[in-house]
Computed example of a mutant assay.
Amino acid sequence: MTEGNFVDYVKIYVASGKGGKGSSHLHREKFIEKGGPDGGDGGRGGHVYLVGNKGLWTLFHLKFAKHVKAGHGGDGGSSRSTGHDGEDMFIPVPLGTVVRDKDSNEILFEITEDGEKKIIAQGGKGGLGNWHFRSSTNQTPRYAQPGMAGEEADIVLELKVLADVGLVGFPNAGKSTLLSVLTSAKPKIADYPFTTLKPNLGIVAYRNFQSFVIADIPGIIEGAAEGKGLGHYFLRHIERNSTLLFLVPADAKDIKEEYGILLNELEKYNPEMLDKDRFLVISKSDMLDEELKAEMEKDLRKSLKGVPFMFISSVAQQGLTELKDKLWAMLNTADNPS
C-alpha cells in the first residue's frame, strides 16, 4: 500500500430507505362486489450498515463515496401481499474504525471485530394496509398507512490503527528503518524529518509461526498534544496499541529528556496512555563503542528508574532478535497476566 492510499478520515452522508405505503385495496372478483379490505402492508426501507472487515487496513475505498443510500420499501398490494423490503447497504470498514456524528462530534460506536455489523441508519417501517383497520363498525376501510421516512445522517469515519506494538519517537528517530528490518513492510525511508506522514503496519514473524503487528506512527514533535504540526492526527493511532515502543537515537543530546518529552505529549493527549506497557529502545547504537555504551547504560539505569531499555541497530542488525523476544514476552504477559 502506498502512503497516498492510506486514508484514515472520511466524511459520508448516509440515508436509509423510506417504508412502502400500505394498500387500501378492496377485494373484487366476479359475483363478489364488496369483498372487504385486502390491502397488504408496505415493505420496510433498506438499512445502512457498517461492517468490520479484517482484510481492510484503510478507508481509501470510501474516499470518494460521499453519499450512501439504501433502497426504498415497496408498496403493499392486493390480496394482502406485502411490498418488498428496500435493499440494504453494507459499508465495509477496517477494524478500529470510530464512527462520529459530524455535527456534535459525539462517538456513536466503534467497529473492532471482524464481521461486526451495526446499523448507522435504520430503514423506515412500511405502512399497514387497510386489512388491519377493519372492524365491526367499519368493515370496508378505504385508508391505509403511509410508510415511515428513513433516517439520514452526516457521519465521520475515523480509523485508529489496530496494532500490538506502536513505535513512538521524534521525526527521523529510525522508526521506519526498524519496521523495515523487523517486518516485510516497505515504508518510505530518508534522512530528513517527517518522511512518514501516515502510519505503516508490518507483521513481525516470530518463532513457531507466531506473529504480532507493529505500527510505525508518524513522528511526534513537542506540542503535538495541542495539535501542533499534525499532532492529533498522529497521536490517535497510538491509542489502540497495547505496548508502546519508544525509539530514541543514540546520538540524541539527552536520551532521558527526549523520552520524557514523548511521554509528556502522550499524557497530555490522553492520560490513559501511561497505563500501557512501555519499552525504550536506543537506536543507531552501532555508532557507540562498548565503553561508551556501558557508560550510557549506567546513567540510564539511574535516571530512568525502572523503565526497561535496550540498545539496537537496525542497519547493523544488532539486538533485533532480543528485541522481538522482549516484545513478545511483554505482549503475552499483558494478554495473559499470571
Rank of each mutant, 00 (worst) to 15 (best):
225 A>S: 15
145 Q>I: 06
278 R>N: 11
88 D>H: 05
38 D>S: 05
89 M>D: 02
277 D>Q: 14
264 N>K: 14
131 W>Q: 12
135 S>P: 08
4 G>A: 14
273 M>C: 07
195 T>D: 08
95 L>G: 04
236 R>K: 15
281 V>W: 02
194 F>G: 10
223 G>R: 05
195 T>A: 14
16 S>P: 00
141 P>M: 03
303 S>W: 09
209 F>S: 15
195 T>Q: 11
93 V>Y: 01
70 A>C: 00
226 E>W: 08
95 L>K: 05
175 K>E: 02
250 A>Y: 06
72 H>M: 07
233 Y>M: 14
36 G>E: 01
206 Y>W: 13
51 V>G: 05
96 G>E: 02
96 G>V: 02
189 I>L: 03
154 D>P: 01
19 G>D: 05
96 G>I: 01
8 D>L: 10
50 L>M: 00
286 D>S: 10
176 S>M: 01
47 H>C: 06
56 L>Y: 12
41 D>E: 11
68 V>A: 03
279 F>I: 09
242 S>Y: 08
232 H>P: 09
47 H>V: 01
321 T>V: 15
59 L>A: 02
69 K>N: 12
152 E>Y: 08
237 H>E: 03
316 A>E: 11
239 E>Y: 08
171 P>I: 06
227 G>L: 04
222 E>N: 12
134 R>P: 07
59 L>N: 02
298 K>S: 14
19 G>T: 04
67 H>K: 14
2 T>P: 15
188 K>W: 04
154 D>R: 06
24 S>N: 15
121 A>I: 01
53 N>P: 08
105 N>L: 11
12 I>R: 00
